[in-house]
Measured scan of single mutants.
Amino acid sequence: NQESVVAAVLIPINTALTVGMMTTRVVSPTGAPAEDIPRLISMQVNQVVPMGTTLMPDMVKGYAP
């Protein structure tokens, strides 16, 4: 099972992602793949992402898996 990126903390809208904001988990439906964490760092979210929420590609500005 592939791990997806999950918010480790509450991420406010327009916040640039840091490694400490993200964790990985096997979830369904799958979100952004765990191996993309290095690409996701410094990208901004376009909505509030509550802690424990799977990071879906459409939540991150300019990100395409």
Rank of each mutant, 00 (worst) to 15 (best):
1 N>D: 15
1 N>A: 14
1 N>Y: 12
1 N>M: 12
2 Q>T: 12
2 Q>R: 10
2 Q>W: 12
3 E>H: 11
4 S>F: 07
4 S>L: 07
4 S>R: 05
4 S>H: 04
4 S>A: 04
5 V>C: 08
6 V>K: 03
7 A>M: 07
8 A>K: 12
8 A>F: 09
8 A>N: 05
8 A>M: 08
9 V>H: 02
11 I>F: 01
11 I>Q: 01
12 P>E: 11
13 I>H: 06
14 N>M: 08
15 T>N: 04
16 A>P: 14
17 L>A: 06
18 T>C: 09
18 T>R: 10
19 V>T: 11
21 M>S: 07
22 M>S: 08
22 M>P: 08
22 M>N: 08
23 T>R: 07
23 T>W: 09
25 R>M: 10
25 R>N: 08
26 V>T: 09
28 S>G: 02
32 A>R: 00
32 A>Q: 04
32 A>F: 15
32 A>W: 12
33 P>M: 05
33 P>C: 06
35 E>L: 14
35 E>F: 13
35 E>H: 14
36 D>M: 08
37 I>L: 11
38 P>E: 10
38 P>L: 09
40 L>W: 01
41 I>G: 00
41 I>C: 00
42 S>H: 12
42 S>Y: 07
43 M>G: 03
45 V>F: 01
45 V>A: 04
47 Q>L: 09
48 V>Y: 10
48 V>L: 13
48 V>D: 15
48 V>W: 13
50 P>F: 09
51 M>A: 14
51 M>Y: 06
51 M>Q: 15
52 G>Y: 06
52 G>W: 08
53 T>H: 13
53 T>F: 11
54 T>G: 04
55 L>S: 01
55 L>P: 00
55 L>Y: 02
55 L>H: 03
56 M>P: 05
56 M>V: 03
57 P>F: 06
57 P>G: 03
57 P>D: 05
57 P>L: 08
58 D>Q: 13
58 D>H: 15
58 D>K: 12
59 M>L: 07
59 M>R: 02
59 M>H: 05
61 K>S: 12
61 K>R: 15
61 K>Y: 13
61 K>C: 13
62 G>F: 06
63 Y>S: 03
63 Y>V: 03
64 A>R: 14
64 A>E: 15
